[in-house]
Amino acid sequence: MTDVAAVHGHAKSGFWARLTAPENRGPLLVAPAIITLFVMNIFPLLWSFGLSFFNYRANRQNVPEFVGLKNFERVLTDEKIWDRFQTTAIIVGSSVTLQLIIGFSLAMLFAKHFPMRRIIMMLVLTPMMLSFVSVGVFFKLYYEPTFGLLSWVVNLFSSEPFALLSSSTGALIGIIFADAWMWSPFVMLLVLAGLVSVPKYLYEAAEIDRVSSWRRFVTITLPYIKSLLLLAILFRTIETFKIFDIIYIITEGGPGSSTESIAVNIYRMAFQNFRTSRSGALAYIILFIVIVLTNLYLYSVNRRAHEETL
């Protein structure tokens, strides 16, 4: 270690030479990223982990008391929480399925070069670039019984008053529809990335052999995009699992608590009831689920990388 400077040939400043020595290059280059992430992510994460063992409330002055695992116990035995998990699962399941179907169909449409492709694709990509606030507010308006665009269209066909958000099933459908609309383009991009990677000679060979288009899809296209589809499912599942803004604006979790997702629940617990510590405990349970899902995500990615090298 000490003769690093000597190897380099300049003995003037030992510290600087040691710092920029070849074997320290990795840590040196990584350091800014790790430091930033530690300060802004890891440290707050540890802080809130600590908080979840106390009975801290952000709106009270008194010194928080250590309560051990009580917050976790409270959260895990609360039936309401399980109900919120169920709501979240329904939203995640339906929305991700819809995103896959729509995203996949759109990808098939854009998997060719055609005139004005870039401009038309922009139309489809725009929903992803809207803010949650604007999607929330305007979809709420579209669903509105008297002034809503969608309600107007429905009323052309039926005379029954159409109030989507007033029933719990309807409100769920409204949320799922808005979320799926916003994020299907993302799935489309993923599937497109897969479709582009299919070697063209396979299709040419299939054409010579006069393989039907369905068989061509099953035997050539699907294997190439299968793992990307899996990625899309996992990635969108992780993101949708955290769904908050859209629900908060369109229904605020209602009617009743029928559309209250787990993230909305945490938000309420933390900022309306000021049960800061308990919300931290619940947030950690979510974090744990997200870590498991991230592991699955990486596993499927690695498998794909492995398949490709074969």
């Binding site: 908080l51 919300s279 997200v290 870590i291």
Partner: peptide, 13 residues
């Protein structure tokens, strides 16, 4: 993981 975590976990700290 830091990218995947729900923002609500760290918002209070």
């Amino acid at each position: 993981t830091t990218r995947m975590m729900p923002p609500i976990v760290v918002i209070i700290p």
